[in-house]
């Protein structure tokens, strides 16, 4: 694994010793894979384009620069929370981040949607969607249904609840399959242990949707206080970069204040 993580700036020369060569000579030579933040200038120069940590993984023969940008760049198969800005004849136009071009969401890319049964979404509605097409020359495209199975798999319009802005790096942590073990983010689990009932959806575009679940007696409706506590816990953990222990303290404090 990568042990050395040097800081690189745009235009720096990467020492050749850091560029992974085929680690396993028995296997077939894998081509070197360049991740974000690096560019290849033919014939053989590899130059960073952003300021960040250079990460190399020799056994996968890949390298990239780890950096934090506050503007979301759409990438295929990312899960995002989009706001519908208007509806066209065949598409909804949805905004992924402020001041950027709208993404298109076909009217029929919802579970079981036909021309007659498709969901009618007024401007300002929220959807949880997956990016299907992202290309620097075109506006991004998103969908709310898996094109392979025809199932929604949790995607679709988001009703009620509240959206909170978080940093892109933190959103990525929350989306990790095991965010507690690998991501050091326990705050949602802790809130659950305190007896709060809520559901969340995390978008890679730095948004998290939080909604209070209907309580045990089946009383519909969102408990605003619960949602605010969850949102604040997430935002504070993000901006103050809290560790697990501090997250525990924060959750205790917020829950105490609420009751």
């Amino acid at each position: 694994m990568a042990t050395e993580r040097p800081l690189v700036l745009p235009g720096d020369v990467i020492p050749p010793s850091l560029i992974p060569t085929s680690a396993n000579p028995n296997k077939k030579q894998q081509p070197l894979r360049l991740g974000p933040g690096l560019r290849h200038i033919p014939p053989s120069d590899i130059v960073p384009t952003v300021a960040g940590q250079l990460i190399t993984v020799p056994h996968k023969n890949s390298m990239w620069v780890e950096y934090n940008s506050s503007r979301y760049t759409p990438t295929p198969s990312d899960l995002v929370i989009a706001t519908i800005s208007r509806s066209g004849p065949d598409f909804y136009y949805a905004s992924l981040s402020p001041y950027t071009a709208n993404a298109t969401l076909p009217h029929l890319s919802f579970e079981g949607a036909t021309k007659k049964t498709r969901p009618q979404l007024p401007p300002g509605s929220l959807v949880y969607a997956r990016v299907t097409l992202a290309n620097k020359h075109m506006d991004p495209e998103i969908e709310c249904v898996s094109s392979a199975t025809g199932k929604a798999d949790g995607l679709g319009p988001l009703k009620d609840g509240m959206v909170f802005d978080i940093s892109l790096g933190f959103a990525r942590r929350l989306l990790m399959a095991r965010s507690k073990e690998e991501g050091k983010v326990e705050v949602l689990e802790l809130l659950g242990e305190e007896g709060l009932a809520f559901e969340t959806a995390v978008g890679r575009n730095g948004k998290v949707w939080v909604s209070g679940a209907s309580d045990a007696k089946g009383n519909e409706g969102v408990n605003a206080k619960t949602v605010v506590v969850v949102g604040r816990a997430l935002q504070e953990t993000d901006t103050k970069r809290l560790g697990v222990e501090q997250q525990r303290k924060l959750v205790k404090k917020l829950v105490r204040e609420m009751r």
Binding site: P10, G11, R39, V47, N68, R71
Partner: peptide, 8 residues
């Protein structure tokens, strides 16, 4: 801002 650049 993390805007890709040729050099600093």
């Amino acid at each position: 801002a993390g805007v890709p650049m040729r050099a600093t």
